[in-house]
Amino acid sequence: MFNYTFRWNQAFNALPRLLEGALVTLEIALLSMLIGIVIAILLTGFRLSGNALLSAIARTWVEVARNTPALFQIYMAHFGLGAFGIHLSPYTSLLAGIAFNNAGYLAENFRGALKAIPDTQTRSARSLGMPAIQAFRLIVMPQMLRIAFLPATNQMVWAILMTSLGVTVGMNTDLAGITQELNARSFRTFEFFAMAAVIYYLIAKAVTLAARALAWRMFRY
């Protein structure tokens, strides 16, 4: 059946380079997550503000981010923005695309989490004499974070997996990009990509475990 000689030593020799790529992957995922969270909080604020224009902007962002492929969003950043004379490097367009996507999904998470907190919580905080800001910061926010944390963890894993799409716009420093470059040189597709798959799997698991440990530290009563 297999008329093919596997050469795993080539893949093992490339391991240091692949791990360097894994660092870049992690870096992009983390950055996109941070940017995404900031924008998502802004969008949630827009939606709650009651201003028709701001809330329309937030709704459009969320719907577009959630109803088009992530790859399309990265293409949009890479090729689409060229029409405005903005030419982004693969790294920047990948980051922009994923951050856009993250922001949309996270905004929806935050909104859901805010909805899940009963109004009475705010009201009782206010009736105890807390100013609105304090009530939000000390009563609503911790509960919101607790509810939104798990979905946000999932989003982080998604962000890591999405970074592999960078290779389609010519990204060659992240894990998928380096794998593809090595593959183009040696045509050992299966070996290199299997190695990359293992690394992606380990990163995803490590992030999930770290998030679980973090949640246990932060959110226990």
Binding site: F2, L161, A197, Y201
Partner: peptide, 23 residues
């Protein structure tokens, strides 16, 4: 769990490589 923790792009490339290896 592997199918959910490995990027789909990598899965597709691996699947394609596998089908050509296995003829």
């Amino acid at each position: 769990d592997i199918f959910r923790s490995v990027p789909l792009l990598i899965q597709l490339v691996l699947g394609n490589a596998f089908q050509s290896i296995a003829r």
